[in-house]
Design a protein around this nucleic acid. Structure first.
Lengths: 144, 144
DNA sequence: TTTAAATCGGATAAAATTATCCTGTTTAAA
DNA sequence: TTTAAACAGGATAATTTTATCCGATTTAAA
């Protein structure tokens, strides 16, 4: 569904958010540990999230990553997915055709569009804050 | 969403089906051309579809691929997806966690399960025959 | 002021996926 | 019977994705 990079990105973002809710800053090492992700790869992804404005970094000793409550509220999951994976998952043809649309549809076009629309609606209506709250309260988890 | 191999597999299967509806046998070359897919890679995929019982091959000169009407009716899209990509798309966690379930859910678990269920329902309720008919009648397409 | 912790970013490596090549076998038609 | 078209399947190559490494820079604390 999503690339591994994207999965790591969402997990990392939610971890940073849940800690920011408690006014804690987290390092890449912390993030990788808490989300069971490879540390160097996670570092790369954190750079993308930072450049993309999803969260922000603080450099130097005692540095790490944080999010403002505004960022948590403003950031929909669909934005993280688009930032890392592009919009292929939201707009691409189910059978991989370059040009597939209502005028010249692939055999799966209608049915697939429906499901894809529901996926997009779900990710559009879910904010980082929505999910970070359950994580902070120990109701949900980011690793086994 | 699906691997390229899986996209090619569905496209190839639907092409074979639509031709079988007209009692025509198609070669790998025909299939690759009609579905805009790489021919050698398509050949590999046809072997998987043949071994998996989705369709069948006829060897030798004038050989190629065919499907019985029974195969078209019995084969759901979900079976092709499972054959080529496994069941990860139907059962996997949205955030890529190994163990993610209602007892110990990831933050996205509930919402993602819903959408994934709709995807599975759609692919479970769609047969090859359903889609091959529109293709045969020129209502849908497999390439630009 | 020095030191060490931490991010930044470029280079490289490993693994998985996608794609091609080539030889052998089967079989219909010449 | 010979020939050529077509699938089967193993080996290899290219590309993309995933992952690691390392030197440079930033900055808080010793």
């Amino acid at each position: 569904m999503f690339s591994k990079a994207c999965e790591y990105a969402v997990r990392a973002t939610l971890l940073v958010a849940s800690h920011s809710l408690m006014d804690e800053r987290v390092s890449v090492k912390d993030i990788a540990e808490a989300t069971a992700s490879p540390v160097a790869f996670t570092a790369k992804i954190m750079q993308q999230l930072n450049r993309g404005g999803i969260l922000y970094s603080v450099q130097g000793k005692q540095g790490g990553f944080e999010m403002t409550r505004e960022q948590m509220q403003a950031t929909k999951l669909s934005q993280i997915v688009t930032l890392i994976d592009g919009d292929r998952v939201f707009t691409g043809c189910g059978l991989g055709l370059r040009e597939c649309n209502a005028k010249k549809p692939c055999p799966l076009h209608e049915r697939f569009s429906t499901v894809r629309g529901e996926l997009k609606a779900m990710l559009d209506s879910t904010t980082v804050l929505d999910l970070a709250l359950g994580l902070k309260d120990g109701l949900t988890f980011l690793r086994v």
